[in-house]
Amino acid sequence: MANILIVDDSASMRNMVSATLQSSGHQVADADNGQNALTKAKSGSYDAVITDLNMPVMNGIDLIKNLRTLPNYKYTPMLLLTTESSAEKKAEGKQAGATGWLVKPFNPEKLLATVDRVLG
């Protein structure tokens, strides 16, 4: 299965997403903000990234922009999992390089189906 990086400033949200992904056999690493995630991504290798949008230090859109500049993450699926659902934010995420957008609270089955789809 895939090695997935989860990024969210909420520990309970990281735990829920981790449990959902691990129940389907995925390996999971996590970070509490975009800067810590970027550091982990540079020193590791992940098959997908699931990030919140609104976080301290570095938000999810800036994280995706930074990851897309790295050769190892040019084509890596990156999903935004956020409470934001405006068309403007979704367009900003897509422009930054986001592969998809999921709205919190998330449906575990939908999250797994989306992850499976973007991983091919």
Rank of each mutant, 00 (worst) to 15 (best):
D47S: 09
I61W: 05
G97K: 09
L102Y: 07
P77V: 07
A29V: 11
N66A: 15
L21T: 13
L79F: 12
E84W: 05
K40M: 13
L67T: 07
K110V: 15
D30K: 01
N3R: 15
V49H: 04
I61Y: 06
G93T: 01
R14L: 14
K40F: 07
R14M: 09
D52H: 09
A91V: 02
R68H: 02
L38F: 13
I64Q: 10
K65H: 05
A91P: 00
V115P: 05
Y75W: 03
L111D: 03
V28H: 03
T82I: 04
N54G: 01
G60H: 01
A41S: 11
M13K: 03
A31C: 08
Q22C: 12
A31Y: 10
A31I: 08
T69L: 14
L80H: 02
P108T: 07
L111N: 04
V28D: 05
S85E: 11
Y46M: 09
S18D: 11
L79N: 03
V115T: 12
L67K: 07
P71H: 08
D32Y: 03
Q27Y: 11
K110L: 13
L70Q: 15
N3A: 13
K65V: 12
I64V: 15
A11D: 13
Y73Q: 06
L63S: 05
V17G: 11
Q95P: 00
S24T: 01
N15I: 09
T76A: 09
E84Q: 14
M1I: 08
G93W: 02
G60E: 01
M58P: 03
W101M: 02
A41P: 11
L102Q: 04
T20Y: 05
Q35W: 08
V49Y: 04
D62N: 14
I4T: 12
A11C: 02
K42M: 14
K110F: 10
M58G: 02
K110S: 06
L119N: 04
L70A: 09
V115G: 05
L111G: 06
L38H: 02
D9G: 08
L21W: 13
N15F: 12
K110M: 12
S45R: 13
E88Q: 12
A87W: 01
L112T: 05
D8T: 09
G97W: 08
V17F: 10
K74N: 08
A96R: 10
K42V: 10
K90G: 00
S10I: 10
L67S: 08
P71L: 03
A41C: 09
N66D: 14
L102R: 07
V57P: 03
S86F: 10
R68E: 02
